[in-house]
Design a protein around this nucleic acid. Sequence first.
DNA 1: TTGTGTTTTATTGCCTCC
DNA 2: GGAGGCAATAAAACACAA
Length: 300
Amino acid sequence: MAGGRLFTNNTNTLIDPPHPPLFLSSSLPFLGSRSMVSFEDVQGGKGSNNGLFFRTYEENGGEEEGMEEYLMQPAEKKRRLSAEQVEFLEKSFEEENKLEPERKTKLAKELGLQPRQVAIWFQNRRARWKTKQLEKDYDSLQATFESLKANYENLLKEKDRLKAEVASLTEKVVAREKQGVNPNQTEVKSSETNGMQEPPAANPIAATVDSVSSEGEGSKVSVKSDILDSDDNHTSASYVFEADQSDLSQDEEENLISRSFLHPYIFPKLESVEYSDPPETSCSFGFDHEDHHAIWSWSY
DNA sequence: TTGTGTTTTATTGCCTCC
DNA sequence: GGAGGCAATAAAACACAA
């Protein structure tokens, strides 16, 4: 808002005297806010300009005549608004941070300020509010990021743990096979009874379990119970027999995770995340599908 | 007291809206 | 085209450590 605009502003009852920067080259020293009126001045307080700059621009003699006299005046130092004025303005800002012309004039009269000063104060106050808001938004995003990062690291750990579990179980099954089970024999038998060729099993464990199952009820129970007995504290062991996770596509893997018992473990801090909208799934974190997908893509 | 960093007041130029 | 908003910036006022 340039100072010169006030000369054409019909809504202002008081018109700013011409500000030096509008008429003088920028190399001249700043002459201060000649129009500035302190609250103390208005109330007959301890202000130092003694009403010298209370005169409106017209009172100073108008555009041409007043100009010279105005520039001859000693430079008035820029003065801050009083605490009372600021408090009043703050309350007004809290009610509404935009300033209609009527409100501006009313505030200016109540505070003994130029309407322009009130407008500038609101402008600067909005800028400060925006800065604070940006800082808050940044902090919030930072917290969300940290939470996602922690969850991501938990997922990585869980993935590694499951991989190790798969390897361990595979070793045990292979060892069991070596003790007397011939998988080739059962595979042939199976094909013959069905009268059609079955596709090879997707992973060694599944193949082994298939073959073991067809050996008869006794051995089936034996293998299963051995595996579970040896890993009692891992209730997730049964998942090993459903699919080999390392061979899953990303979508399949996501699907598995979102359906699995791991949910409460993987997302311990879910309740701390603020949602702008109800999440599509329990692990969307308020991101839309694409963002959600991107986040999941980090690790795979 | 002084140097320095921060805050506040004000200006400038550009943009959007009516 | 005028009015008003905003970003960038200047400069005075202020706070504070050394």
